[in-house]
Simulated assay, not measured.
Amino acid sequence: MDALLSSAEEELYVLDCMAHFMVFMAACTFVTLLFENVPYGRYASSKYGAPVNARFAWFVQELPAFLLPLCLILWTSSSKTSLLPNRLLIAMYFCHYVQRSLIYPFLIRGGKSTPFASFILAFVFCTYNGYMQIRYLSHFAEYPVDWITHPCFLAGSVLWLVGWVVNVHSDHILRNLRKPGETGYKIPTGGMFEYVSGANFLGEITEWAGFALAGHSVHSSAFAIFTTVVLTSRAVATTKKLLLGTIKGDIREAFLLTT
Rank of each mutant, 00 (worst) to 15 (best):
K80C: 15
L88H: 05
S118M: 14
L107I: 00
S118H: 11
M92D: 07
L74E: 03
L107Q: 13
C71K: 05
Q99V: 01
I120K: 14
N86Y: 02
S101M: 14
Q99H: 13
S113I: 01
R100Y: 01
T114K: 15
L102Q: 09
I103G: 09
S82V: 06
N86I: 02
F119C: 10
S77E: 14
Y104T: 05
Y104I: 04
T81G: 07
L88T: 01
H96A: 11
L72P: 05
S118L: 11
L83I: 00
I73C: 15
L70K: 08
K80L: 13
Y93G: 07
Y93E: 12
F106I: 02
Y97G: 09
S78D: 08
R100L: 10
L102Y: 05
G111H: 11
G110F: 05
P69L: 13
L102C: 07
H96P: 09
K112M: 09
I108F: 10
P105W: 03
F119S: 06
L70W: 02
L84S: 06
I103A: 15
F106N: 02
S82F: 01
S79Q: 13
P105S: 10
Y97I: 04
I108W: 06
S82L: 13
R87D: 03
I120F: 13
A117G: 09
K112A: 09
T114L: 15
L84V: 02
A117M: 15
L102H: 04
F94W: 07
L89F: 00
M92W: 03
L84W: 01
P69H: 09
F94I: 03
W75P: 00
R100D: 06
R100P: 06
G111M: 14
L107W: 01
P105A: 12
T81E: 14
L74R: 10
L84D: 04
Y93I: 05
R100H: 05
N86L: 05
P85A: 11
F106V: 02
R100M: 08
W75F: 09
P69R: 14
L84F: 00
T81C: 13
C95H: 07
T81W: 10
L88M: 15
K112I: 00
S101H: 08
K80Y: 04
S82C: 09
P115S: 10
L83W: 02
F116W: 10
L70A: 15
S79W: 00
L102G: 06
R87M: 10
S79L: 12
F94C: 13
M92Q: 13
S113W: 01
C71P: 00
T81Q: 14
S101K: 12
Y97E: 11
T76C: 10
L102E: 03
T81S: 14
I120W: 10
Y97P: 07
A91R: 12
